[in-house]
Simulated assay, not measured.
Amino acid sequence: MKLAAAIALALGAATAHAQSNVAIYGIVDAAIVGERGGSAGNLTKVTSGAGSASRLGFRGSEDLGGGMSAFFTLEAGTKIDTGEIDAAGTIFNRQAFVGLKTDLGSVALGRQYTPYHTTLVNIVDPFSTGYAGTSKNLFPDSGTNVRTSNTISYASPRVNGVDGELSYSAGEQTNIRAGRQFGGAIGYATGQLSVRLAYNSKNSDVVASGGTPAVDRTLGRNTLLAANYNFGWIKVHAGYGIDKGYNAAPLGNANNPYGGVKPTASTDGRDYLLGFSMPAGMGTVLGSVMHKDDRTSFNQDANSWGIGYLHPLSKRTSLYAAYAHISNKNGAGYTVANNTESGTGNTGYNLGMRHTF
């Protein structure tokens, strides 16, 4: 009922204020997903959002004059396989923000993506963090590394190929440092080359409350150097990440997916990715190899590779197939994920369809 009321309100706003340039958009994505190698056994299912998370969104802008405009985005995640909202108790859980844009850049407030995540999506990962070959398999692209609430962000205009972004998420506790997260990125793009450096800092402290003592933890920090180059016949992608501190690199599936030695999230690790995307007939072939170098005493390293093919049926509709495999070392617990699920085993495949509107 809440989602229906919100949609009706947004539709009403779009009709009554057409001059505000309001648009309805979305993605409908469903796939047959196979997972192999986990202790729970083999699993085959129908999943929503293996390639790109299914969603329904509203975005718009209004020219305020003098080179200034207002903008907003409200985006709800949906599960195509069941028709449910993808996060219980929420409506616009994916994005919800409002902001102002001028010639000096844009400022937005609300629930937003982190600079770390957008760097992975737009520069590093040929799979754009989706499908079985996703960088989520080894890179820490989950939780608040992806998006944060209570966020103030700034994005600069691009000048001579250079642009930057900053974000600050308030922890909203009595200690201003507790629970806060901030990050940024600076990039350079010209012709066929794109390079970007992103940083993320996460405070997981909790202040004392009543008889509950305070919890102090080390900062979780992520640094990501990203680049890609388009040769025309092939586009090459590369990424190098440094993850240090508490909760810097949470496991996608922390539920001991392989039995035996319980995997431990790395607090000192390095992530490497080399990938490509290239035209093949009417479609596109994607591929990547990754390595996780865990520098803690557990030494839980992992290697991963993935391959995929995207076949367009039109500008809005495409079919896809993807396959990936992970080799875990010393009890590491990395699983083959997709855009919306963390996975249950070290091998996985997707056969799906994606439509945008």
Rank of each mutant, 00 (worst) to 15 (best):
5 A>R: 04
6 A>P: 04
13 A>D: 06
19 Q>N: 15
22 V>D: 07
23 A>F: 11
25 Y>L: 10
26 G>V: 01
27 I>W: 07
28 V>Y: 03
29 D>H: 01
32 I>W: 10
32 I>P: 00
34 G>E: 01
34 G>R: 03
36 R>I: 12
36 R>S: 06
39 S>I: 12
41 G>W: 07
42 N>E: 09
42 N>I: 00
43 L>Q: 04
43 L>G: 00
49 G>C: 11
55 R>E: 13
59 R>Q: 14
61 S>K: 09
61 S>I: 05
63 D>V: 10
67 G>N: 06
67 G>P: 07
69 S>E: 12
71 F>G: 08
75 E>Y: 12
79 K>I: 14
80 I>A: 11
82 T>I: 08
83 G>H: 01
83 G>S: 03
84 E>L: 15
86 D>W: 04
87 A>D: 08
90 T>P: 00
95 Q>I: 01
96 A>D: 09
99 G>L: 13
102 T>W: 05
105 G>Q: 02
110 G>I: 05
111 R>D: 01
115 P>Y: 12
117 H>R: 05
117 H>Y: 15
119 T>H: 03
120 L>T: 02
120 L>F: 06
125 D>P: 10
132 A>F: 08
132 A>E: 04
132 A>R: 10
133 G>P: 06
133 G>Y: 06
137 N>F: 00
138 L>A: 03
138 L>M: 01
142 S>D: 13
149 S>K: 07
150 N>E: 08
154 Y>D: 05
157 P>Y: 09
159 V>N: 07
160 N>Q: 12
160 N>K: 13
165 E>D: 14
169 S>F: 12
174 T>N: 11
175 N>D: 14
182 F>E: 15
183 G>M: 08
184 G>W: 08
186 I>N: 08
190 T>W: 06
193 L>A: 13
194 S>G: 12
200 N>W: 09
201 S>V: 14
202 K>F: 14
202 K>C: 02
202 K>E: 09
204 S>G: 04
204 S>M: 07
205 D>E: 10
209 S>M: 00
214 A>V: 09
218 T>E: 13
219 L>E: 04
219 L>G: 02
220 G>D: 11
222 N>V: 02
224 L>V: 11
229 Y>A: 13
234 I>K: 08
235 K>S: 11
245 G>V: 12
245 G>D: 09
250 P>F: 05
254 A>S: 15
257 P>L: 04
259 G>S: 10
260 G>E: 09
262 K>Q: 13
267 T>F: 01
270 R>H: 10
271 D>P: 02
272 Y>R: 03
274 L>S: 02
278 M>G: 09
280 A>S: 12
283 G>L: 12
283 G>W: 08
285 V>M: 13
288 S>A: 15
289 V>L: 04
292 K>N: 02
292 K>D: 03
295 R>D: 08
298 F>R: 13
298 F>T: 13
300 Q>C: 00
300 Q>A: 03
302 A>I: 04
304 S>W: 03
305 W>N: 02
307 I>G: 09
310 L>E: 09
312 P>V: 07
314 S>V: 12
315 K>E: 10
315 K>S: 12
316 R>F: 03
316 R>W: 05
322 A>H: 01
325 H>T: 11
326 I>P: 04
334 Y>M: 04
334 Y>K: 03
334 Y>N: 15
344 T>C: 09
345 G>Y: 06
347 T>W: 01
351 L>T: 07
355 H>I: 02
357 F>I: 04
357 F>D: 11
357 F>V: 00
